[in-house]
Deep mutational scan, measured.
Amino acid sequence: AIERGSKVKILRKESYWYGDVGTVASIDKSGIIYPVIVRFNKVNYNGFSGSAGGLNTNNFAEHELEVV
């Protein structure tokens, strides 16, 4: 089962992080479509409006993740 702290591989082909491994930061139990927040070591794009980097978290559905 996917739980907080799990290392997961991203299976969503259109994702910037496809094939990468991230760490589960949290799981939303409220029934939303993409409840699993995954944190990565790298950012997906340069930040804007003065922020240092881009996003390094993204929401995924459990079926888009594979525990490694």
Rank of each mutant, 00 (worst) to 15 (best):
A1S: 08
I2S: 02
E3I: 10
E3A: 11
E3M: 13
E3V: 11
R4M: 13
G5I: 03
S6Y: 10
K7N: 07
V8N: 01
V8T: 02
V8K: 01
K9C: 14
K9W: 00
K9E: 03
K9T: 04
K9N: 03
K9Y: 02
I10A: 01
I10M: 01
I10D: 03
L11A: 03
L11G: 04
R12Q: 05
K13P: 10
K13N: 06
K13S: 09
K13C: 14
K13R: 10
E14I: 05
E14P: 05
E14L: 06
E14F: 05
E14S: 11
S15K: 00
Y16N: 04
Y16C: 13
W17E: 00
Y18G: 00
G19S: 04
G19T: 04
G19W: 07
G19P: 01
G19R: 04
D20H: 10
D20S: 09
V21S: 02
G22C: 13
T23N: 02
T23A: 04
T23C: 15
T23H: 05
V24M: 01
V24K: 00
V24A: 01
V24Q: 01
A25D: 13
A25C: 15
S26V: 08
S26P: 00
S26N: 10
I27T: 03
D28E: 10
D28R: 04
K29W: 11
K29H: 11
K29F: 13
S30L: 07
S30I: 08
S30G: 10
S30F: 06
G31A: 10
G31C: 15
I33Q: 14
I33T: 10
I33H: 10
I33F: 11
I33V: 11
Y34K: 06
Y34W: 08
Y34L: 08
Y34E: 07
P35I: 14
P35M: 11
V36A: 00
V36G: 00
I37Q: 13
I37N: 08
I37W: 14
V38C: 04
V38K: 00
V38H: 00
R39G: 05
R39I: 14
R39S: 11
R39Y: 10
F40I: 07
F40P: 03
F40W: 00
F40C: 09
N41Y: 06
N41I: 11
K42V: 07
K42S: 08
V43I: 13
V43Q: 08
N44I: 14
N44Q: 14
N44P: 09
Y45V: 15
N46I: 05
F48M: 14
F48N: 14
S49M: 15
S49H: 09
S49Y: 14
S49K: 06
S49R: 02
S49A: 12
G50P: 13
G50M: 03
G50Q: 08
S51Q: 11
S51A: 10
S51D: 14
G53T: 11
G53N: 11
G53F: 04
G54S: 08
N56K: 05
N56D: 14
N58W: 13
N58G: 15
N59G: 10
N59Y: 08
N59L: 05
N59F: 08
N59H: 08
N59D: 07
F60T: 00
F60K: 00
F60N: 00
F60L: 02
A61K: 05
E62G: 05
E62L: 12
H63T: 08
H63V: 12
H63F: 13
H63I: 07
E64P: 01
E64H: 02
L65N: 01
L65S: 01
V67S: 04
V67N: 05
V67D: 03
V68I: 11
V68P: 02
V68S: 03
